[in-house]
């Protein structure tokens, strides 16, 4: 590498910083690629799995690259998202299998959303005024991960998870709104 002119170097330094963040974000978001692969294998809806997984991957990279609350939401969302992805797959595909009805899907996914929502709400309580952004960002990643896990069951599964998550996180949002 040759020396860069001192007056132009600061721009290079800024670019290096942003590229470093992007690279790191892509590496940390790569768990989404694993979820896509499992989803394609289990749910057999390749096109939708790839589309939803790519959205999850891109969003996680964006959040992590941006940093601050968004990055914290992405970290938590990806971890909780693995839970939201695994529970429907293990319970609905592994346990119920062909006997799985709409009601079962709804209950399992709502409970999953509820559990994940409670876990994230506990963490969000420590963030003060930024808890809305945190819960919204993490929730989006959780719902996308959960959707990858229950593509086979259609929108009803996703709806159940969204409702469960909303029920769990609403009290925290209301409480934070009241005490702000």
């Amino acid at each position: 590498m040759t020396m860069i002119a001192p007056d132009r170097f600061i721009e290079h330094a800024r670019r290096a910083y942003e590229w470093g963040r992007l690279e790191h974000a892509a590496l940390q978001s790569s768990v989404a690629l694993l979820l896509i692969a499992i989803s394609v294998a289990v749910c057999q809806e390749s096109a939708r799995s790839v589309a939803i997984g790519a959205s999850l991957f891109a969003l996680a990279i964006g959040f992590l690259w941006h940093g601050r609350t968004a990055a914290r939401a992405a970290h938590a969302g990806l971890k909780a998202g693995m839970l939201a992805f695994a529970i429907p797959i293990v319970v609905l595909h592994g346990y119920f299998g062909a006997d799985c009805g709409i009601m079962t899907v709804l209950i399992v996914n709502a409970l999953t959303g509820l559990v994940v929502g409670i876990l994230l709400s506990v963490q969000a309580m420590r963030l003060g005024g930024r808890c809305y952004a945190y819960l919204f960002g993490a929730g989006t990643l959780v719902i996308l991960s959960g959707t990858l896990g229950c593509l086979f069951f259609g929108p009803i599964g996703v709806a159940g998870m969204v409702v469960g998550y909303f029920v769990a996180t609403a009290p925290v949002m209301v409480y934070r709104g009241a005490t702000a």
Partner: peptide, 18 residues
């Protein structure tokens, strides 16, 4: 020193996330 400092600065900023 200036040349190496440039390299070091770029490396520091690339890795600062960690």
């Amino acid at each position: 020193a200036e040349e190496i400092a440039q390299r070091a600065m770029l490396k520091i900023l690339t890795k600062v996330t960690t």
